[in-house]
């Protein structure tokens, strides 16, 4: 078995880490699902307030999405702008 190059090892593990980082989006998915469910309940109870409810839902989703976006940014950095390779 040939020796593993240090850079190759870092790149391989970074790719794995990028995939693992995206697990963090799970929480956002669950949270947005709960929010959408509650919004549907609210619209069923008060159909007149539909526009306000949708606007509040979108705003809340945008805030909840932040953690998922941070996961995506970490994954992108690990793949495209890996800071660890430079440490070799």
């Amino acid at each position: 078995m040939s020796a593993i190059d240090g850079k190759a090892l870092i790149l391989a593990l970074s790719a794995l880490g990028a995939g693992l980082a995206m697990i963090g989006t799970l929480g956002t998915g669950i949270g947005q699902g709960i929010a959408a469910g509650k919004a549907a309940e609210a619209v069923a109870r008060q159909p007149d307030a539909q526009n306000d409810i949708i606007r509040t839902l979108l705003l809340g989703d945008a805030i909840a999405e932040t953690s998922a976006i941070y996961c995506l940014i970490i994954a992108l950095i690990l793949i495209f702008a890996n800071p660890l390779v430079r440490l070799l």
Binding site: A62, T66, I69, Y70, L72, I73
Partner: peptide, 16 residues
């Protein structure tokens, strides 16, 4: 920071 990253991440993610 979150405002900037949200827009950036969404558009770049879609592009990728």
């Amino acid at each position: 920071v979150s405002l900037a990253f949200r827009l950036f991440g969404n558009i770049l993610g879609g592009m990728i």
